Amino acid sequence: MQAAPTPELLSDADSPPTDDAFQRLSALTPGAERDALRDEIICAWLPMAHRLAARFRSRGESMDDLRQVAAMGLVKAVDRYDLSRGKAFETYAVPTVTGEIKRHFRDHTWDVHVPRRVQDLRNRVRTARRDLALRLGGRAPTCAEIAAEAGLAEEDVLLGLEALESYSALSLDAEPAGVDGGAPLANRLGACDHALDVAVDREAVKPELRRLPERERTILYLRYFRDMTQVSIAERLGISQMHVSRLISQSCERVRAGAMEGAV
């Protein structure tokens, strides 16, 4: 983040004379008159808040959003300012508004939720890498060099580098970087292969199938692997179709119960 601008960098238009207004505001009790004076002070200092917001305009957020956040910070500064401490309002308001904008970037502009500690690591790694690149003539610094520059462990540097890619999420409709006319990322994602579940189920029932009598195994094979009808199986084995149906039901139930017991 950029350093907080100092009051000296503000123009005269951004620093309206409101000491008397703050004196009167502190003496008023809550009510319509106090609310009107408070609104007057906020409006007087609003150009200052907008000027501070403009310094963050290249960060990817719209100016309307930045101005709204800066205005919220200004309201907090007006409500919390204590004239009796002897400091000028702008000395208190500038870091308050700037801090509100920085918190907005920290808490609301990341596409991927990243813990505060990791965000801080990201900023330190980014700054160290930028400074090293300038000194190294454009060569990309190594992880060890960044760690020494930032005063971090290499594990923290790796975490910060990973967080550098987490600020913005890449659309699944986007094409891979460096590939013209390539398939979007969504087409490269894996899908659930139901054949894997079938393979697992087959392995689970094999021990139970081996325990069945030979006739029952033959009936299940003919029915489910040769796709024969119960009538055809009955004719082949010389038994009734009703008997075949009953044996299939009993065998399937036995195999299922055994597989479930084995899974537990």
Score class of each variant (00 low, 15 high):
Val264Leu: 14
Asp64Arg: 13
Met1Val: 13
Leu66Asp: 05
Leu152His: 05
Asp111Arg: 06
Arg130Tyr: 05
Asp65Pro: 04
Ala32Leu: 12
Leu222Lys: 05
Pro176Thr: 06
Val78Gln: 01
Cys143His: 13
Leu46Cys: 07
Ala183Trp: 05
Ala204Leu: 13
Ile239Cys: 09
Asp12Ala: 12
His104Ala: 06
Ala183Pro: 08
Arg116Pro: 02
Ser11Trp: 04
Ala183Met: 09
His194Thr: 12
Met260Cys: 15
Gly182Met: 03
Val78Ala: 03
Ile239Ser: 08
His50Ala: 06
Gly31Ser: 06
Arg80Lys: 09
Ser26Tyr: 08
Leu159Met: 09
Pro141Thr: 03
Asp120Leu: 05
Ser62Lys: 05
His194Leu: 12
Gly137Val: 03
Ala177Gly: 11
Arg126Pro: 01
Arg217Pro: 05
Met1Thr: 07
Asp180Leu: 06
Arg129Lys: 14
Thr218Cys: 13
Ser11Phe: 04
Asp19Ala: 11
Ala4Thr: 15
Thr127Gly: 10
Asp12Gly: 02
Glu100Gly: 01
Lys87Gln: 12
Leu74Trp: 02
Ala140Phe: 10
Gly181His: 02
Asp227Tyr: 12
Ser58Trp: 10
Ser58His: 14
Arg116Cys: 08
Glu203Gln: 14
Ala32Pro: 13
Leu159Arg: 15
Pro16His: 02
Arg130Met: 06
Met242Phe: 11
Val179Pro: 00
Gly238Arg: 06
Gly99Asp: 00
Gly137Lys: 02
Lys87Asp: 11
Met63Trp: 08
Gln68Phe: 07
Ser232Met: 13
Pro184Thr: 00
Thr142Phe: 00
Leu52Arg: 03
Leu170Trp: 07
Met63Thr: 10
Asp180Trp: 09
Val231Gln: 14
Val264Trp: 11
Asp79Cys: 09
Leu134Ser: 10
Val244Pro: 00
Leu170His: 11
Ala186Leu: 12
Asp131Cys: 02
Phe56Ser: 14
Gly262Trp: 11
Met242Gly: 10
Ser240Ala: 07
Arg57Met: 09
Glu235Trp: 07
Asp156Arg: 08
Tyr221Asn: 11
Arg116Trp: 09
Leu66Cys: 04
Arg210Asn: 13
Ala259Pro: 00
Ala44Gln: 05
Arg59Cys: 03
Leu220Thr: 00
Val157Asn: 01
Ile101Lys: 02
Glu8Val: 12
Asp111Lys: 05
Tyr92His: 06
Arg106Asn: 06
Arg217Ile: 10
Glu235Asp: 14
Leu25Ile: 01
Thr127Met: 09
Asn123Lys: 09
Gly190Lys: 11
Leu212Cys: 06
Ser11Val: 01
Gln250Asn: 12
